[in-house]
Amino acid sequence: MANNISVICNKNELKKIRSFVNQHLKDLPFSSKEKHEIVLAVDEACANAIIHGNACDEGKSIDVVLTHDNSTLSVTVSDVGDIDFVEKRVMKKDLERLARERKKGGMGLHLIFAIMDEVRFYTRNKRSYCTLIKNLPH
């Protein structure tokens, strides 16, 4: 089963994506807590793509594709931004350091890595992809 949604790069569209993911997760065997966490992880990946990947340029869009089989849920967020994998790794920072530096950002990737079982970043044909994978409960 596959589902996809495409939204313009406007932060107000995040609510629409969360609703889309929630709807898709409804019949999957995750707990309520896990479903909330997955929605949060996808929200973070999309916020990264909209804000950092595309500078909230409403002339651009991001795509979210959800697929699942009997063992895994996979969510791929793609955009035309060009932040590479190394930069994304650097964005994962320590919370106390962020507080000392009075920083407001830098925690999204931490959440994504904490919630998902596997996270892949790659580029193909000048498009950036972030795939979030969560194993279905046995």
Partner: peptide, 13 residues
């Protein structure tokens, strides 16, 4: 989300 939490983190100090 982290953006919301980030607001509070930035004022802790």
């Amino acid at each position: 989300s982290s953006a919301g939490l980030g607001v509070f983190v930035s004022y802790i100090e």
